[in-house]
Structures are given as structure tokens and as C-alpha cells.
Amino acid sequence: MILVTGATGTVGREVVRRLPDGVRVRLMTRNPAKLRATGVMGTTGATGATGATKEIVAADFDAPRSLEHALRGVSTALVVTSRVGGDDDLRFVRAARAVGVRRLVKLSAAAVLDPGAVDLITRWQRTTEELLRSSGLEWTLLRPRSFMSNTLSWAASVRSERVARALHGASANACVDPRDIGEVAARVLTEEGHAGKAYTLTGPEPITPAEQTEQLAQALKVPLRFEELTLEQARAGLAGRYPAPLVEALLESAQRQRAGAKSAVDGTVCSLTGRPAITFRRWAHDYRDAFTAGGGFSP
């Protein structure tokens, strides 16, 4: 039995879609009704398109007993946490040890390898990685670069203004398609030979926000304009979504990208999946409908 946390998230839902036939998977959620409404369970009852047999379990990182209940009978679990600085990973590891889980697969980030990355988020990610390594359980770490899907944040301005806005438009990032992360994770969760390994996952090439805008325009077949945000504009936009410490951490991360810290390409996606990593051009083509309104653009 495999347990997947974050099953409705950007990576989790891609993992669930890619688990092979015959695999029993348990999806952990605080709100089972909400999970069923997302369509992650598939359209054929307990068995989705991949043939993996799915069940839902209600559990909360703040309730250790519920975690033990969710993990009982599980051999391998995908750990996706997002509360920076919290104890979610510690509670999960303790529960996994208590009920005899064999291996944990942790979604981390490529920034942990950068000695210049000392922001709040990266320090927390390093702490969670060390927690797994010292847990006494088998472990595997997945360290993706930024998600190509982050550009979905441009959808509203693309629809209404045909404009994409970002900080440091000429800074390159070897961003990765979440579908590639999902395929790698599905393999790691179901195959042997991955214990004690850490995999850095990137796209096939570094790309700048300005270049992403150009490729998105080609996918949409409309002209788009890129506008570079000032530091204060970026800070104000982030402040509407995140607490101040996280805002500053994200701005520090953007500055490292500007300095070239996120442009290196890693071939792990190809070596584990047997095919090249997906390009941003293909991602933009596949998700072009997310940037349109009713099949067209708002005036």
C-alpha cells in the first residue's frame, strides 16, 4: 500500500495519475468530500484511469493519532508538506515509525544544494531532509526546480491585458513540468533501488520569464507583452498571498535566480523515465486553455 499526501496539489495529483495498474494507493486528506469533488479518484469509482486502486483516508498533520491511522498498513509514503517552519514532517515521521512504514519519499527542492541559499524556506527544507535521513527509515528525496505551472499566475493578466509580469525578466530557471515530477515520483514509489538517493529534477533547458512569455504567445497564437516588475511591485503582489517572512524568502530566491543559481540542467528526469524532460514550449501548448476565457480572450 502506498500513501500519498497532497493528492490534490500540483505534484500529488500527477503522481496519482501515473501510478501503475494493480497498485493500491491511499490518499490522505483533511476533507474527504473535497478530495472526491476534485476528480482525483477518477470517473470509474475506486479505480482511476491508471488502474491503481484508490481509497481515501481522513487525517491531519496536527493530529498524530490520525496520521498513525492513515499510515497503518502502508509500506511507502509520499510526503508533501508546505507549512514552512512547522512540525508536520516530524509528526509524520514519528507516526510512520510507530506503525512500521518502510520508506518515505519526500518532495523537497533543488535549492537545498545551493550553499548561497540561506532563505527561510530553503533552511526549512534542509531541516526536513535531515529529519528523514536520521529517521531510521528508508528514504528518497525529490528535489525539483521551480514548476513550469507557476506561470499559471499570469492567466488573469494574459486574458484581460495580454500581458505577463514577473521579476527579473532576463533571469533563467531550468524549471520542470510537474508531470515529469509526477512520473519520477510514481516510479520511485513503486520500484526498488531508490532508497537513500536524492534526485534533482529540472527541465531540459533554462528559460527566462521573457522567453516563457514569447513561447506562451506562440502557443496561444496571439501577441503577448512581458512587463518586468520592480522589487516593490513584486513585494506588494506577494504580500497579498504570503506572510512577510515568506515574501522576503521568495524575493531572496528570485535574486539568486537573477545571479544564475537556477539555470543548471540535470538529466535525472531522462535517466529515470527513459525520455527527455518536457519543454516549456510543450507545457504552454498543452495548458494553453488555462490562459483563455471561453475559448478566446477578453477584450
Rank of each mutant, 00 (worst) to 15 (best):
V57F: 01
A58R: 09
D60V: 12
D62E: 15
A63P: 00
A63D: 14
P64L: 06
P64N: 02
R72C: 07
S75R: 13
T76V: 05
A77K: 00
V80C: 01
T81F: 04
S82L: 11
S82Y: 13
R83C: 13
G85F: 04
D87N: 05
D88I: 00
L90Q: 11
L90K: 04
L90P: 00
F92H: 09
V93T: 01
V99Y: 08
R103W: 01
V105P: 08
K106H: 14
S108V: 00
S108L: 10
A110C: 02
D114H: 04
P115W: 12
A117P: 14
A117E: 05
R123N: 06
W124C: 01
W124L: 06
W124M: 01
T128G: 14
E130I: 07
L131I: 13
L132F: 05
S135M: 12
G136W: 07
W139I: 02
W139G: 02
P144Y: 08
P144W: 14
R145A: 11
S149Y: 01
T151N: 13
T151H: 00
T151V: 11
L152T: 00
S153F: 12
W154P: 04
A156K: 06
A156L: 04
S157I: 08
V158Q: 01
E161Q: 10
R162K: 03
R162M: 06
V163K: 02
L167Q: 10
L167K: 04
H168G: 09
V176M: 11
D177R: 14
P178D: 14
P178R: 09
V184H: 08
A185W: 13
A186Q: 07
A186F: 02
T190K: 03
E191D: 12
A195H: 01
